[in-house]
């Protein structure tokens, strides 16, 4: 098995993983915002393919999904955006979406397009370990890493999940949906210790992270920090002019994370 491109994201200290919803506020602006994240120092980009009913998302990303759909974002439109991005950056890119749009597109067609345009992985919050078999073969054929999530409630499941995991492990910091949290109460060190026992893959922490202090602290114990809602909030606030604010935010977060070294 050759090493996936996603591993590159974790070569230079703790990785900053930034999320935006594709097509929010428009596909052209999403592309600008993603390039701004790369300039700001993002090591891996997560692009959300919008879905009408994102049950794992809090209100901020729900609203972004609806904005993107209202602005006409389609799966093909997002693939075209990735193709353009790939002419400008080799930063690893993963999709985050729900199973229905992928199922509707057709599994074979969808992952073939991922391979062709340069998408390195996919996160599907409604595809737990028990159902992953449905996609494991086809994602592997097309060199797309099917990324597994681990939650605070996963304890006895971690070993099984880790054994099949690809790319990196996405540690869900808290119970509940995505969204900015003032405090993360889960014992992340204990959770990470269980993960490290079971897997060699890098482990990144997401859900609720927004402040420099949180990023700094989590970068000390985890291999990556995933930030979604805080970036999407900037996009909601600044709209078409969000690129500059996002770049600045990502740069400050990444700087906070490297202060540990």
């Amino acid at each position: 098995m050759c090493m996936s491109k996603i591993a590159n994201a974790f070569q230079n200290g703790a990785a900053f993983i930034g999320f935006v919803t594709g097509g929010d506020p428009s596909l052209a602006k999403s592309e600008e915002i993603i390039l701004a994240m790369v300039r700001g120092g993002a090591d891996l980009i997560e692009i959300g393919i919008p879905f009408s009913d994102p049950i794992a998302e809090g209100s901020v990303i729900q609203a972004a999904n609806l904005r993107a759909l209202a602005a006409g974002a389609t799966v093909d439109g997002i693939f075209a955006m990735v193709r353009c991005l790939r002419e400008k950056t080799q930063t690893p890119i993963v999709f985050l979406t729900y199973l229905n749009p992928v199922h509707h597109y057709g599994y074979e067609a969808f992952f073939a397009r991922c391979e062709e345009t340069g998408v390195d992985g996919i996160i599907l919050p409604d595809l737990p370990f028990e159902e992953q078999e449905e996609l494991r073969g086809i994602t592997a054929v097309h060199g797309v890493d099917l990324i597994s999530l681990i939650a605070p409630t996963s304890a006895q499941r971690i070993a099984r999940i880790a054994a099949q995991a690809r790319g990196f492990l996405y540690l869900v910091s808290s119970m509940g949906v995505t969204g900015v949290r003032s405090e993360i109460t889960t014992d992340l060190s204990a959770m990470l210790a269980l993960v490290r026992e079971a897997a060699r893959l890098p482990a990144a922490v997401g859900f609720g992270i927004h402040s420099l202090a949180q990023a700094k602290e989590i970068a000390r114990i985890a291999d990556g920090v995933i930030v979604g809602s805080a970036i999407v909030k900037l996009v909601a606030q600044y709209g078409d002019d969000a690129a500059e604010a996002v770049e600045d935010y990502v740069r400050r977060m990444k700087a906070a994370m490297t202060q540990n070294e």
Partner: peptide, 13 residues
């Protein structure tokens, strides 16, 4: 059928 839900709920399910 199946169990297409977030990992966070799997233990409870």
């Amino acid at each position: 059928g199946g169990q297409y839900i977030p990992e966070t709920l799997m233990n409870e399910i």
